[in-house]
Design a binder for these strands. Structure first.
Length: 896
DNA sequence: GCACGGACGTA
DNA sequence: CGTACGTCCGTGCC
């Protein structure tokens, strides 16, 4: 308490505009909306802030000050005051009024005073409170309030966002600025305030200003001795006396505004929970922020929370023989599972398992399991008849495998189910998923979700784990309904869920990598890299720029060497390989050749280095495959990405030779679909010509080219074939004549003619593509052969750019997505085939249209049959699915 | 330390 | 002004 502790008043004073504005920029505007197009990010952030500050500072009184639109007396002193500020973003509009509605419901008084700023209101109330011996706490990002800091006045400055605050008392101000708070306006007058468009003395910063203030006492003293001050700064001061004096008049706080004296007007505990909930409903705010509203703000005994906390079943923590009892009694039919512990790169430390149903809740400690409990749990987990649900079944399986436990009987994978229903949403953590489903109409992004329900923040250990399991159980029910609604039950049950198990085994197995091969390659590339770099520098007169910096390259190429500008990027001009090749054609400058060579070799080294970092102690790389990333339904791979290992260039391909058959295995096998996307186009378009092309057994592009150019297949030359191939594949991506021309480096007229010629023979393909886009526009989503949907709301956008982009996506998604469906089916078939045939050979990788397998000794012939059959008959199209198979000691040699 | 853009590897 | 991804680096921000 202060020295004048007679007064217990402790008033919180908030600068409404400053904090609302800050909240606006701290949270994404497009992530917070009331569902009707009104952004609410500033409202949410501001409300969070006031809740937090009231809870942590425990004031007895509170007031919020706002600016009024239009000018103040300061504009009459200086007509450029606050000029040049960025215009308020449109999404900010209306949010101040909403904040005021929240404050009304909270029973917090807010004030505006004609002709004055929020600062002046705060200054008046702070000064008055301090004079009466109370304490004032000011919350603002505006520096003008620094002058108010004193024994009874503390400033809370937001540091990051609106929830982290720095406490400024007189000592802190002195520490930061080197002067006492009451001298701050003097310092600001000298330095100027760019936010208010108040220029100060050029060449004088806070350090100099503080030095002068210390030397001459205050601004008056400085001006009185202005003639004595030496140097440039002194002269600058003498030249700008008027501006300084004006600044000082401007930044002086007004402390005598007419504001209500009655302390009741500022007291807490006047909030109306019913009104507040109505406002929060309007704003689509979630349950947690309601729960967090401090009771002191509300009228007696009320709570803001309208979302009743679910009564959790009693938490059981069985040990020993109790585990078997509890599993048999409460979880005989199934349960939702949540496991505590991390799993990465084959390393796991699962420590506890939570189980939940609608009526039961248990946490089993995995660290101190005795034999009886372990056996009971192992039996229960392995029982395929016991239905189990998890947020991520593959991860749960990995975690339990790390404890030596196998799982069967997975029935629902929340992440997969969610993805099938909403493939374009970002992958969701459990907290985010729970939030989205608990508040159906709540349109918040992960930032808010994390705050709302952060299940990762493990505060109460087993309770949190149990609550999470309970959430998984309830979400399981919800998502099963969602799957029905989106016609995705079969996709989940019969494709993705079983596939998750197959992929999990692939990840756990990993692929053997020969580090010596990579080390040797790296050494070769290192030498080459140095050689090329030296050569490149020699063409720059020995200037050793950073060849990896697009910025420095632009300076050299376009400024220093005066080369013609290339296509624009966001930050300048492109230096990508295509642009550099163009430049080389035009200028013949030898630097460009070296630069391109340097890029190539640097890229190769990066790839090699990245791979080496991921080699496990057992000499294997365990990538992670994701089922819930690519909106078309493809898998993705990361840590490391094994789906983009080079293959196009000779140099790049050598990296593939480092991927080898595992010890105890005979060789690697690769099996890939030939032209699967074109086959799908033939099937979906039902185009006779294209179907015939595949049935003829002739080389596809040669056959199509012979029709397009109207020559015999044997008369198709290389140029005709490659042009036709470009059109064929371009079709599946929505390629324009412009893009085709650019890619083939031909004129746009020629490209148009080429495409027209193509459609003369294969017009059915164009018709199909057009119709499929129109159908998607009508029903709102695209569909693959297995019924995997992708919503595309932008197909009806008024914005041409967005609409045309969505059209290309609509064109491509059924094709890419159906190919993804087919290879996923194939993976299940191959997995089944391996088991049925009793083979030890195993699938290691999937690269979109290719599988890589370890071939066990003596199994090659049988494996060929299993793989060819599994992939070839995965799905029946109107054209055959052709599978190419190759075998060799390593991935490169296994190519065919 | 973190976010972003540019560049480039794959299907 | 061609779809779908992941990773690296340099840069500029806090």
């Amino acid at each position: 308490m202060s020295a004048s502790g007679a007064n217990e008043q402790r008033i919180l004073l908030i600068d409404g505009h400053a904090m609302a504005f800050r909240a606006f920029f701290a949270l994404p505007a497009d992530g917070f909306s009331d569902g009707r197009g009104q952004a609410t990010n500033a409202v949410y952030g501001f409300t969070r802030m006031i809740i937090n500050v009231v809870a942590s500072e425990q004031p007895t009184h509170v007031a919020v000050a706002f600016d009024l639109p239009g000018g103040t007396f300061r504009d009459r002193i200086y007509d450029q005051y606050k000029a040049g500020r960025e215009v308020t973003p449109p999404e900010f509009h209306g949010q101040i009024a909403l904040i005021q509605q929240v404050l009304d419901a909270l029973g917090v008084s807010w004030f505006t005073v004609e002709d004055y700023e929020a600062d002046d209101i705060i200054a008046t109330l702070a000064t008055r409170t301090a004079a009466e011996g109370g304490q004032a706490l000011i919350v603002t990002s505006d520096r003008d309030s620094i002058q108010l800091v004193g024994e009874n006045v503390t400033l809370l400055q937001p540091i990051k966002g609106v929830t982290e605050m720095r406490r400024m008392d007189p000592a802190a101000v002195e520490e930061k600025y080197g002067i006492p708070p009451e001298r701050y306006p003097d310092l600001a007058a000298l330095v100027g305030e760019s936010a208010d468009n108040l220029p100060g003395v050029p060449g004088v910063g806070p350090k100099t200003a503080a030095k002068w203030i210390t030397a001459y006492g205050d601004l008056q003293g400085i001006l009185a001795h202005a003639e004595e001050i030496k140097g440039k700064a002194g002269q600058s001061l003498r030249d700008n006396v008027e501006a300084v004096e004006r600044n000082r008049r401007m930044n002086a706080a007004v402390t005598d505004l007419e504001l209500p004296q009655d302390p009741e007007r500022y007291s807490l505990g006047r909030g109306d929970a019913v009104a507040l909930n109505a406002v929060f409903d309007e704003l689509a705010f979630g349950p947690t922020i309601r729960k967090d509203v401090p009771a002191v703000l509300l009228a007696d005994g009320e709570s803001a929370s309208t979302v009743p906390e679910r009564e959790l079943p009693a938490l059981q923590q069985p040990t020993g023989e109790q585990v078997a009892e509890v599993l048999a009694r409460d979880f005989a039919a199934g349960a939702a599972l949540v496991i505590d512990g991390r799993w990465e790169l084959g390393q796991g430390d699962a420590s506890a398992l939570a189980l939940a149903t609608d009526d039961a809740l248990a946490v089993i400690d995995l660290v101190d399991l005795d034999d009886t409990a372990e056996r009971a749990l192992a039996t229960w987990l392995a029982d395929p008849a016991i239905a189990k649900t998890a947020h991520d079944t593959k991860l749960a399986t990995h975690q339990l495998r790390g404890r030596g436990l196998d799982v069967a009987g997975w029935s629902t994978d929340l992440a997969i189910a969610e993805f099938l229903c909403r493939p374009d949403q970002r992958p969701t953590d459990l907290a985010g998923l729970a939030m989205r489903h608990l508040q159906e109409d709540l349109q918040v992004t992960s930032a808010a979700v994390q705050q709302e329900l952060d299940l990762d923040q493990d505060e109460s250990g087993k309770d949190t784990l149990a609550r999470a399991a309970d959430a998984v159980a309830r979400l399981g029910t919800t998502l099963r309904e969602d799957l029905e609604q989106h016609a995705a039950v079969e996709l989940h049950d019969d494709l993705e869920l079983p596939l998750a198990r197959v992929i999990g085994v692939m990840e756990a197995t990993g692929i053997a990598v020969d580090d010596d091969v990579l080390a040797e390659l790296d050494a070769q590339h290192e030498a080459e890299q140095e050689r090329v770099a030296e050569s490149a520098f020699s063409h720059l007169g020995g200037d050793r720029i950073n060849l990896g910096s697009p910025k420095q390259l632009q300076e050299v190429l376009f400024d220093r060497l005066g080369m013609p500008r290339t296509r624009r990027t966001k930050t300048g001009f492109s230096t990508d390989a295509e642009s550099l090749a163009d430049l080389h054609e035009k200028t013949q400058h030898p630097f460009l050749t070296d630069l391109l060579a340097h890029r190539d070799v640097t890229k190769m080294r990066q790839i090699i280095d990245t791979l080496r970092r991921f080699i496990s102690p057992t000499g294997r790389i365990h990538t992670t495959f994701h089922q819930n990333i690519a909106a078309t339904g493809r898998l993705s791979s990361n840590n490391p990405n094994l789906q983009n290992i080079p293959t196009r260039t000779e140099e790049g391909r050598r990296i593939r030779s480092a991927f080898r058959a595992s010890d105890g295995f005979e060789s690697l096998m690769t099996a890939d679909y030939s032209q699967i996307e074109m086959r799908i186009m033939a099937h979906l378009s039902d185009n006779e010509g294209l179907i015939e092309a595949f049935r003829s057994g002739e080389d596809l592009h040669r056959y199509v080219a012979s029709k397009v150019f109207d020559v015999a297949p044997e008369d198709v030359d290389g140029a005709m074939r490659s042009k036709t191939k470009a059109v064929s594949y371009g079709l599946a991506y929505g390629l324009s004549a412009f893009g085709l021309a650019r890619q083939l480096r031909i004129s746009q007229a020629e490209a148009t003619a080429l495409r027209d010629g193509y459609f003369e023979r294969f017009g059915g393909v164009r018709d199909y593509l057009r119709e499929s886009v129109e159908k998607a526009r009508a029903i709102g989503y695209t569909e693959t052969i297995l019924g995997r949907r992708r919503p595309l709301p932008d197909l009806t956008s008024d914005n041409r750019q967005r609409r045309e982009n969505a059209e290309r996506v609509a064109l491509n998604s059924p094709i890419q997505g159906s190919a993804a469906d087919i290879i996923k089916l194939a993976m299940l078939r191959v997995d089944e085939g391996l088991r049925d045939a009793g083979l030890t050979s195993r699938v290691l990788l999937q690269v979109h249209d290719e599988l890589v397998l370890d071939v066990a000794p003596g199994e090659e012939e049988q494996l060929r049959e299993v793989v060819a059959a599994g992939m070839g008959s995965a799905y029946e199209l109107s054209v055959p699915l052709e599978v190419g198979i190759g075998v060799g000691p390593n991935w490169l040699a296994a190519a065919h």
